[in-house]
Structure formats: C-alpha cells, structure tokens
Amino acid sequence: MRLRELRKAGSLTGAQLAELLGWTQSKVSKLENGRQTATAEDLRRWAVAVERPDVAGELTSRLAGLESHMRSWRRQLATGHKAVQETLNTEFDRTRTFRAWEGSMIVGSLQTADYARHIFSRYTDLHQSPRDTEDAVRARMKRQAGLYEAGNKYRIILWEAALHALVCPPSVLAAQLDRLAGVIGMDTVELGIIPFSAPLRIPPANAFWIFDERLVIVEDWHAELWVEDRAGIATYLRVWDMLNGSAVYGADAHRIITRAGRMLDAR
C-alpha cells in the first residue's frame, strides 16, 4: 500500500513508473499488491523514481520487519531442512508450555522417525530443496527429548483426518498410530483428537504452534509466519481454545486412534 501511495503522490501511473525503472508493468503491480517481495535495491530505486529518496530507509526498514516475521520456505530451505529443524529446536528449548494444532498430519513432536522421513521427503519434492532427509530426521527426533523433561507441557490437538492421511506407507502410519496411543497418559502430554463428528466452533485451518505465550508459528505452503505481537498471539490462543472445545482426551482419544488403526488394517 505504501508503494502505491508514493507512486500516486509522484503523479505517476504504473506504466510510467515501470518505464522509468526499466521494469515490466506487471512487476510494479505485483510489488504494490504484495504478490512479489521487493528487494532493498527495488525499494531504493522506487523511492528515487518517485522523487522521494528520503523514504528509502523507511521502506527498507519495513522490508526487514516483514522478512523477520514472514519466513519463506525458499529462503529457509536453501541449505535443506536440517537448519530449519535446529532453529525450531532452539525455540523448544526455551519453551515450557507448547500448544499445537494440526489438521492434516501428525505434529512433529510426536512423529516417529519413519513418518518424519516421509514428510520431509514430500516437502523436499515440493520446494525442490537440498535433500538432507536423514539429518533433518535426526534433528527432529532430538527435539522429542523435551517430552520426558519434568515441567514441560505439550498440549496438542489433532483433527481425526490426520490419523488417516496416507502421507506415508500404511505400515509406517500404523506404527505412527501406535506411537500416538502410547503418549496418552504421559505426564507431559495432553493429546486431544477432534472427531469427524464433533461440532466445530471455528473451521479448521492452517496448522500453528504456540510457544508459551511469546511466539506463534503458522505454517503455509510458501512460508512460515512468526507472530510475536501480543494481539496476534492472543488471537491464536483464542483459536486454540475454540478448537480445544471440540477435542476429546484420554480413553475417548485412544478409541479414535485405535479405530483409525483398525480401518487401516482393513484397507
């Protein structure tokens, strides 16, 4: 929005600005509408072209703030998945209460190594990133040591769909379901399952994780969103509470997991 304001204040059309910068008009439009991320050099040249070189610093500061919160997979995965997992491990080390919502797969903190291996392989194919699957799996498994540390609390909600998603071979999913059943009753874990039949106060959407009440990480196909402002965190806490109202725990959750295993055996 700020870029458009500057262009209009300079009495330039999109076509005129594109000609001045030697860009296509579509690039100008994409930058103005947030469909393409500007570089610092793009912003500097834009400021000069609209005869406002004094705002170049403001624009690059906004870019730096955006990039610190919107972390594109293209950039994060430039060297593979291991580095991303190690960054997450640092956040887990700082966290005592971890809340998670996952609607389509098993949350990483409860994944078996074989299940994680297939997840990483599929995302590597999607993002065409370096294939460091074994290193990434080891980093993710290291994180699970926190499940056995007194004082930690993992409050995890899964939609029942995650128990049926064949993102791996059936034998791997069967072992993963056994793993889920096994964590029920652990002192550090509260595992809730939202049944297909449960009424929902809010539509299930993107997966997200809440680290204490200081950070939320939201996953999307193209990027992770790191939310650190109080209002944003409060929104995700409300969403988590609304989803939690539809979840079942303990023996009821165990029955849903067992039922998913039986359905898998019948395929």
Rank of each mutant, 00 (worst) to 15 (best):
G151A: 02
R99N: 09
M105W: 12
R122S: 15
D114N: 07
R122M: 13
I119K: 04
R131L: 06
I119S: 07
A100I: 00
F98C: 01
E134Q: 10
Y123D: 15
D132H: 04
D178R: 14
R155I: 10
R138A: 15
D93A: 15
Y115W: 12
Q144L: 00
E86F: 02
A113H: 01
R122K: 11
L166A: 12
Y115A: 07
E149M: 12
Y115C: 07
Y154F: 15
Y123H: 15
Q111V: 02
I119M: 15
G151L: 05
R131Y: 11
Q144R: 06
S129R: 04
G146R: 08
L166G: 06
F98W: 08
T97S: 10
L158N: 09
E149Y: 05
H127S: 03
R117N: 11
D178Q: 13
T95S: 06
R143Q: 13
R94M: 09
W101L: 03
A165E: 13
A145D: 12
R143A: 02
A113T: 00
G151Q: 02
D132C: 01
Y154A: 11
D135E: 15
G108N: 10
R138V: 08
A136S: 13
H118V: 07
R143F: 04
M105K: 12
L88D: 07
Y154S: 09
D114S: 11
A181N: 10
A150M: 10
C168S: 15
L110V: 03
Y148C: 12
F92N: 06
M141D: 02
E102R: 07
Y154E: 10
V167P: 03
V172G: 00
Y148L: 15
S109T: 13
A150D: 14
T133C: 07
T124D: 05
L126N: 08
T124P: 03
E102Q: 15
T133K: 02
D93Q: 14
Q176E: 10
V172F: 00
A150I: 09
A175T: 11
W159S: 14
L166D: 11
M141L: 15
N152V: 09
L126F: 13
Q176S: 03
N89I: 09
S109V: 14
